[in-house]
Simulated assay, not measured.
Amino acid sequence: MKFIATSLLASLLFVPNLASAGSGDWEAPLLVDSTNSHAVYKPLPAGSASKPWHLCVGFPHMKDAYYVAKDYGIYLEAKRQGVSASVMSAGGYNNLTQQIQQIEDCVARGGNAVLVNAVSKAGLNGLIEELHGKGIPVLDMGNGLESPHVAAAAKALYYQAGSAAGGYLAAKHPKGSGKVKMVWLAGPAGSQWVEDSVVGMKEAIADSDVELLQVIYGDTGKEVQMRLIEDALQAYEGVNIIGGNAPAIEGAMEILRMRGDQDKSLIAFYTTPAIEQAVRDGKVMATVGDFNVIGSRISVDQAIRVLEGKLEVPLANRQFFVVDQNNVNTYDRDVLLAPDGFDPIFEIEVGS
């Protein structure tokens, strides 16, 4: 059992040396399943776009490190291929009308393809059908689109994120090693990525000595998460592990510092710069990465391939990996986060 647990831990910490966020060639590991037989995503060679296509890129917002990193990936691959892009922020998940208007305006200015992290899975269906009729492809950058006219998609399945975090814990605490108690701060109830991550986590710890006390739902604002953690620590004695969304783990660090509590382990199922730094500092046990920057690069490559009739991987589901003290100083940070000090770029010109 100890050998199996050690092997599992090693596999979760192994980050394939395939993806580089520099301006040169790159590759990315993919999940192989019934929807995709390609284990590695291989982009077109640099500078191989047949013309300076213009891409319209829609994000829900640019308020956090996740979407700043996605913007960074768009910038890198557009620059590598010699295409231009207009990057648009809708200002929040409630702004469906704003996202639709931004996309329409960009296409009217000569956009050749639309890449979108949609604020609504079904809300863009009418627009996508209209653009399909005009020969403008629409690509899903990960939030999900229900339209049958989506030309390609690059996703990170958060079942795998929960499974990676749970698998890491199961390897640390295999059956028979001694019970440990955990509370899990999932995020907003009903959100697909939240529910999927919970399922993955539960399945991964099922045959381990990790005892799940409660899955706690709530808005991912840090203040909300901190209140939920305080309530959980009041309700349950002997909590050993606090796991869950990144703002919750950032808040947990503050709570434990104020309490002078150094006995609890923390793990996040996605990564922010603050969480990654906390892993470096030994304040967080581990975090999960999803090749976020590379996801945007895949979307740009897919768009060019669609426009030029060269699409090979219509659905690219990225792998996940765990970052902890063993690899935090050696893994390629640029596949996951934008460089420190990077400011979002909204207009990417050819040759910029």
Rank of each mutant, 00 (worst) to 15 (best):
88 M>T: 11
85 A>K: 09
323 V>M: 14
140 D>R: 01
17 N>W: 04
226 M>C: 00
30 L>N: 13
30 L>R: 10
86 S>F: 06
21 A>T: 11
170 A>S: 13
291 F>K: 05
107 V>P: 00
154 A>T: 13
253 M>E: 03
148 P>A: 07
125 N>W: 06
169 L>C: 03
169 L>Y: 04
230 E>M: 00
119 V>K: 07
118 A>T: 13
123 G>T: 07
8 L>E: 11
21 A>H: 10
275 I>V: 15
212 L>Y: 04
87 V>D: 02
308 E>P: 04
186 A>Y: 00
6 T>F: 10
302 Q>V: 02
3 F>S: 14
328 V>D: 06
237 E>V: 07
85 A>H: 13
38 H>C: 12
238 G>W: 05
241 I>N: 00
157 L>T: 12
284 V>D: 04
79 K>V: 08
37 S>K: 15
351 G>S: 06
291 F>R: 01
243 G>H: 05
141 M>L: 12
350 V>S: 02
159 Y>R: 13
124 L>K: 05
294 I>T: 11
300 V>A: 00
180 V>K: 15
227 R>P: 01
55 L>H: 04
237 E>M: 03
172 K>T: 08
321 F>M: 14
192 Q>V: 13
116 V>P: 00
230 E>F: 01
313 V>N: 02
147 S>Q: 03
28 A>N: 10
117 N>G: 11
258 M>K: 08
86 S>E: 13
207 D>Q: 12
175 K>R: 15
318 R>K: 15
271 T>E: 14
289 G>F: 09
190 G>E: 01
256 L>V: 04
102 Q>C: 05
296 S>H: 05
287 T>I: 02
311 L>I: 08
322 V>Q: 07
141 M>V: 06
